[in-house]
């Protein structure tokens, strides 16, 4: 496929193109100048509601906004309930919202990056990627976004949690959502003290409180290339590479892999024995 920049694409055409990408079509991500904003945080922290409010504010500021909302695929059936759209309380010609499933990947789907580029090349000014509800280790999103937002809510932990490693180190800014909840003031002060160098915003996404300030910040943001970015990219590349190597392995050894899964589940084998057997299968390639 040779689709490159095309700002006259209809929503229908863009949607069809995204489906092809999702189904594995080989497509070189087109060039795009659009700002990519990654939004991550624990399940229930209010990412989807916040994104709905941000999208409304940004569209009202005259921007064309793309949203890619990722939810997990079932490890049992392969199906998924993609529920982020429920929080979106409007549709607009300048808003393109697409729900995608992880399809075997972790916090973000393999195709999210390419889809963001396609939306950018189709004339959208800012692309917001919502990750699966994540935890401390889900920071791959920082590698593919120009600006990464970590959404927290009061009771996300004490000052010891703030000392821990992972996403909280890598995120460019923290959004304290549900900031009308009891205990929010104390939590905000603690965040400020723990991260004096970080941008910290307070929002109540449900009522669009604090969202105007946050979206103005997003629009004026200039991407920073520093050691944090490098760490995120290292992690993302490693994740993609593991995925590629594993799919290659599965292509040749799916039966052996499934046999080992069943054997461990039936307690006929220890997990480490299964790993050794699978490594042996790999070397026979």
């Amino acid at each position: 496929m040779d689709e490159s920049n095309n700002t006259s694409r209809s929503k229908r055409e863009i949607a069809k193109l995204i489906t092809q990408i999702e189904n594995g079509a080989e497509l070189t991500p087109p060039h795009s100048e659009a700002t990519v904003v990654g939004v991550t945080g624990a399940p229930g922290s209010g990412k989807s509601t916040l994104i709905s409010a941000m999208a409304r504010a940004l569209v009202d500021k005259g921007k064309k906004i793309g949203v890619i909302a990722v939810d997990p695929s079932s490890p049992i059936s392969g199906g998924a309930v993609l529920g982020d759209r429920i929080r979106l309380n409007f549709t607009h010609e300048n808003l393109f919202f697409r729900s995608i499933a992880t399809r075997g990947m972790r916090s973000i789907s393999k195709s999210a990056y390419t889809i963001a580029k396609v939306l950018g090349a189709s004339g959208y000014d800012m692309i917001i990627i919502e990750t699966v509800g994540g935890g401390q280790e889900d920071y791959e999103i920082c590698a593919i976004s120009d600006l990464s937002l970590l959404v927290l809510c009061p009771e996300s932990g004490d000052s010891i949690q703030m000392l821990k490693s992972g996403i909280i180190e890598l995120a460019d800014a923290i959004v304290l959502n549900k900031s009308d909840m009891e205990g929010s003031e104390i939590f905000y002060t603690m965040l400020k003290n723990s991260f004096p160098e970080k941008h910290i915003f307070r929002t109540v996404a449900l009522y669009s409180k604090g969202v105007d300030e946050l979206t103005s910040f997003m629009l004026s943001w200039k991407s920073v290339e520093d050691h944090r970015k490098e760490a995120a990219i290292r992690s993302f590349l490693a994740m993609m590479l593991k995925e590629e190597l594993f799919s290659g392995f599965l292509k040749e050894n799916r039966d052996v892999f499934e046999e080992n899964v069943r054997a461990v589940a039936k307690r006929e084998k220890e997990i480490y024995e299964a790993i050794e057997d699978l490594m042996r299968a790999k070397h026979k390639l």
């Binding site: 079932s74 059936s77 392969g78 199906g79 309930v81 759209r85 429920i86």
Partner: peptide, 10 residues
């Protein structure tokens, strides 16, 4: 979902 489909609920 349990039948393997991706379901979007509005």
């Amino acid at each position: 979902r349990d039948a393997g489909m991706e379901v979007i609920y509005t």
